[in-house]
Design a protein around this nucleic acid. Structure first.
Lengths: 347, 347
DNA sequence: TTTTAGCACTCAACAATCATGACTGCTAAC
DNA sequence: GTTAGCAGTCATGATTGTTGAGTGCTAAAA
């Protein structure tokens, strides 16, 4: 990328434009910059600098006698270089701690709470995408009898995510059946990923014997999880999106329909598996949403990657705050899980 | 209610106004009615009838030289008297059958699919509110060991709804513990509703012995389910709401925030426990949403009431279609469940 | 008594015009 | 390199006029 060097003053001005635009959503003028950020130079000087920055592609003028707004290029530079981590306020920290330090049962609940907290504090719509279930290892499979012909399959993965579903089988289910089935299932599934299991379909065929039907059912379940990315996406605070002005009905409709089809979001966010923090801005990044930015971070619980959590909002979102919140939440999550069954005794 | 008698012609005109307004969302004029519904009388005659209907409170004139739009009173009369059940098209019936006749595992999946189908075919946002868990009876509670100090609690209710959560206990969990715990739990919980259980807290105290901690955890889970109405509400097709014009950004925001806080919806819909079909229109019905109508029907699966399913949309929604769809889906659900594990063999 | 035609009246919606003021770009002086 | 000053641009908002859809009323016809 052509990250040319800017003079210190140009950088300061550019940062000022982005900051102001994030606050107001209005094109920012030379006069405004002078008043709020400079005492020593005149607006005319700033104008000439702005003009230069526009030539370089950092700024855009909606029309000739309007102020400037930042381009995507400016946002990127802003995030790379200018953004200062704003420390969270005490109130915010407490809010996060309070939400996240309760007693949880299962990853799902943690994830939901996390989504809520992020949306709450950033005031943007939050998104959490759990890791593709194809990639997680199955730690254990349990079969629990419900009645004569139906049972509950519980799938425990190495990142602690639990999925379950009921299935029906023709065989009569009794304790012996359950015991044998459990033993058989774990021999096959334990320590493997779904994609692995799907690939050696034929091999196990003979060992299965009576459990063929059961095995098929479970494979079907895994398959449906693998295909259904929908369940891996949690969205909170959808209504917050519209609170950030500058959107019209069309944008709202567009946004809602993206939110509705969670699969697409999962794909967008799953792409960058490796990066710690990722910022996607606007359409050109295949975000599917115009005038939108998505900021996500990789999250771990209990030392295991569980997925990405982040925020979707307008391009001019308050990146500093979002990044601060995401990273603090990330840290808190790590701490919680490491402490294990942490503060049960406090209650 | 003051359901005064209207002349046959007045009724026909009123119905015409509602029908046209449902189609166009535009105030409908005397001329329009004459052209599309009457050959034998002039627009002037219709005008005087319209004027009379307005005096009676059925119609509203947005401004003096505009057509009329129906009032809530008109919608109610329309639903009570004029609405004809439109038979669904073959394509629609097939779509419903196809979605609902697959093999399901668990009520949750059925409910989700139902919500999708309703939203799909009516083109409105669909809502399903499951029965308040306080009122359902617990059929069985199962404890499954996950590792040394954590277990999965599975709660099976009489309507087949399954909830589960992991819990942690200090005691070491082994097969004996699980067996005894299961026995104990079922002695306490079986056949009772959550509210019953909560009320005789003190009595069981002595029988519990070693399982006090476990019992408390489970009570906590039940409590959180009971309070958390959120899990009982399923919403599909939120984006469809905005496709029905006549809404502005404020309405959209309002709608989204209601959708976000599912508890409120649950309350609104849970109110009318007894009625088969319920239509709520506009604010005055404490719907919390302006210019909105909610149509819901009581649903059964397997002979047991499971909750209410319905649709939320603009006041001028296509009630005929919605009611037809809801009732057909209702019938289909009943049939499915009665057939039991129905078409597994077809595959 | 009911229906109809005709006409005057009202009013939202649209377009055209105009004044305002927020900015900029340019130039010439500092 | 910086600044002040000024002309030029253009969105915004207010004002006005025009249009046409649609009504209410009245008087005549059925």
């Amino acid at each position: 990328m052509d990250k040319e060097k800017l003079s210190e003053r140009k950088e300061k001005i550019l940062k000022a434009v982005v900051d102001e635009y994030i606050k107001s959503a209005l094109p920012v003028s030379s006069g405004e910059i002078k008043n709020k950020h400079f005492n020593d130079i005149s607006s005319a000087t700033i104008r000439s600098e702005l003009s230069a920055l526009e030539d370089m592609g950092y700024l855009i003028q909606p029309h000739v006698s309007a102020g400037r707004i930042p381009s995507k290029k400016a946002y990127k530079k802003y995030i790379d270089q200018f953004m200062v981590k704003i420390p969270l306020t005490q109130a915010e920290i407490e809010k996060i701690n309070k939400s996240l330090k309760q007693r949880f049962s299962g990853v799902e609940e943690i994830v939901e709470t996390t989504a809520k907290v992020i949306s709450d504090i950033t005031n943007y719509t939050s998104i959490i995408v759990l890791n593709d279930i194809n990639k997680v290892k199955i730690k254990e499979i349990k079969l629990v009898d419900l009645d004569k012909h139906s049972a509950l399959v519980i799938i425990i993965t190495d990142s602690g995510i639990i999925r379950d579903k009921t299935i029906k089988v023709k065989n009569e289910i009794d304790t012996v059946y359950i015991r044998d089935a459990n033993a058989m299932l774990n021999k096959i599934f334990e320590g493997r990923t779904i994609s692995e299991i799907k690939s050696f379909d034929a091999i196990v065929e003979k060992e299965l014997k009576d459990f063929k039907e059961l095995y098929d059912s479970i494979l079907e379940i895994l398959d449906s999880y693998a295909q259904n990315k929908q369940d891996n996406v949690i969205i909170e605070g959808a209504s917050k999106f519209l609170e950030h002005s500058e959107y019209d009905l069309d944008a709202a409709k567009n946004f809602l329909s993206v939110i509705d089809t969670k699969e697409k979001l999962a794909e967008i966010i799953d792409q960058n598996d490796d990066i710690e923090f990722s910022v996607k801005i606007g359409k050109d990044e295949s975000c599917g949403l115009d005038k939108c930015a998505i900021v996500t971070a990789k999250y771990k619980i209990n030392g295991k990657d569980i997925g990405h959590a982040g925020v979707i909002g307008p391009e001019r979102m308050d990146y500093s705050k979002v990044v601060s919140v995401l990273s603090y939440v990330g840290k808190t999550l790590k701490r919680i899980a490491n402490g294990g069954n942490n503060d049960k005794e406090k209650e």
